[in-house]
Design a protein around this nucleic acid. Sequence first.
DNA 1: TATGAATGAGGGTTCATTCAT
DNA 2: TATGAATGAACCCTCATTCAT
Lengths: 192, 192, 192, 192
Amino acid sequence: MRSDARRNRERVLASAVGLILETGREPARDAIAEAAGVGIGTLYRHFPDRQSLLHAVARHVLEGAISAGESIVDSDVGGEEAVRCYLHSAIDHGIGVVNMIHPLLDDPDWPDLQVRAEKLMRTLLERVRRDGQLRSDLAAEDIVFASVRFGRPLAIGLPEARDREVAHRQLDSYVDGLRAPRSTAEGGSGGG
Amino acid sequence: MRSDARRNRERVLASAVGLILETGREPARDAIAEAAGVGIGTLYRHFPDRQSLLHAVARHVLEGAISAGESIVDSDVGGEEAVRCYLHSAIDHGIGVVNMIHPLLDDPDWPDLQVRAEKLMRTLLERVRRDGQLRSDLAAEDIVFASVRFGRPLAIGLPEARDREVAHRQLDSYVDGLRAPRSTAEGGSGGG
Amino acid sequence: MRSDARRNRERVLASAVGLILETGREPARDAIAEAAGVGIGTLYRHFPDRQSLLHAVARHVLEGAISAGESIVDSDVGGEEAVRCYLHSAIDHGIGVVNMIHPLLDDPDWPDLQVRAEKLMRTLLERVRRDGQLRSDLAAEDIVFASVRFGRPLAIGLPEARDREVAHRQLDSYVDGLRAPRSTAEGGSGGG
Amino acid sequence: MRSDARRNRERVLASAVGLILETGREPARDAIAEAAGVGIGTLYRHFPDRQSLLHAVARHVLEGAISAGESIVDSDVGGEEAVRCYLHSAIDHGIGVVNMIHPLLDDPDWPDLQVRAEKLMRTLLERVRRDGQLRSDLAAEDIVFASVRFGRPLAIGLPEARDREVAHRQLDSYVDGLRAPRSTAEGGSGGG
DNA sequence: TATGAATGAGGGTTCATTCAT
DNA sequence: TATGAATGAACCCTCATTCAT
């Protein structure tokens, strides 16, 4: 029954991510279990308390996003494109859920992912500096915080597809705005 | 006793906005009442059901944001600056709360504010087109959705001041990215 | 509504004691609330968590038993009769419930009752020694542990009235056995 | 594989008795299985429903207690000593568990043990009457109910060894109290 | 046969809302 | 009108029992 258990675990995680992103809220346990097609007891066997489910959900999406990011940097695209692709990919992997999980991951306890994430960010920033397309003062948090900002549903009643479209469009403008500033002759920085 | 009632109403609204932005969630009714220093019964006297409190909260922040926007366009600044200032101002007025209110304001029922909001957006877009600094295809939703996107706390455990700082910084990049595209000689748009 | 609240509190306590003694178990919260004729929410308003209800129940019966004991010693009966009456009275006051409450009163937090209980025991033991009817080495725990031992229903299916009768009968034999030993000429084997 | 099965059955029974006496409660099935070192499925194979496990546990301790009692009467000690020894022995055999099993053994279904128990009680009472040390109106229930009363842990947080010591001490006083009453000249009022 | 995963009924607790004072 | 007690639906979680391996 190991394989069944594995499949159930996967289904619960997928359902949890889906429901969080659909509803913009942390869903009721019963709803997750029902969406996964398992009993509530099964959910609790795999994730014995609130924290462990939320941790697993967060790991799940982070792992997906980081893996995608690693592929992107492996393909040796330019700095701007790498950052842009990573962010689009991360929100498609559901990275916005980490923004909707309370209390937030107090005890992350995932040194492996942290190491991979830090390496990924370092690589992205090196690429950015090498290629000179984006601001040279770009920092890791400009990427990380953007992923959680744009990955989260607006929750103002847009249908999911529309919400996703808006997110990607806004994200593109954001990344456009990270470009190295034009010479002043070309026109003004604006600023806050 | 009318003035007492008015004050209680104001306090409840202010507490609701404050708690929503502090916690990143729709707070419990008791918590709102307690933060306002009134009894739960008083809260329900002023806002007899869920919708009416949420509506009032939304009106409260929208009114502030729109009024501020009207002042901005009155001062006849350039299109880019007007959009940028409006957005910074809107998030400071707490416009992000409309993103955290569930279910979203199904029945807006505020024709006055809609009229003012539409007029404000029209004016901003005209200004943008007149001045030519931002994309000419800029639409009202590029502004409206940005205000709710950036107005909402990230809810990843940042202290409130830090969260606000991040929001303004991200917003600036977003507005930078709304500028009219450079000539291709200067280097590509990227795209998503 | 203070008086209503008070009455509800009393009713919940009485129902809890009654159900514990009837069923020999810690009853479900709904059952207590229903027996008290209040909603489950009311029960939780008065006793916000498991401990606080159990504490209150224990206090309730201890207070009754101690008060009765104080009256008994005030009436200046002989040592043996005082001990015997106290024990019969304590089990009628439901002192057996303290034996059925888990986890037991980890944090008693009732210095007032402890002081009264200790004084009562001291008085009883002085009376016993003064009158010479019971063993001179009688200790407080011989009384205290007896009250909880005999106060608890046997839980072997006896009807409540029968159970109570058995308890009183067994208790009488126990107290008889606490008498000062007969001279060896008269017999008596002692030890187990 | 028969011997394995037998050993598992024994282990489950022993664990059940041990846990009941340690905790003063009917333990969770998983806890019994774990303490026995078997899977929950194995427990249910041997004891397919609640009743059958509880029956088996009860039989287990009753059989031990009755056998011990039979040895005691075989050794032809006096009536008082026989009763006293039987009771001490019964509580050491764990007879108190029958007091903690709910719902109590509605359908005893153990005619063999009943026959042996009745014969044992008859013999004890005959011995008592023959020797004249204990009350001549002593009844079987004075013995049976005492065994379950004193065999049960007090459950007020005493360590197990201490609890057992208290039980034996209280039992001794109880048996002392079953002695034939003194002549009135010597004192003693009896009744409560 | 032994195992442990799956199930879901039921008990525990919270909280939005109503209502008596 | 202000208050906070009362209510019960809904959510959280445990655990007795079943079932697939």
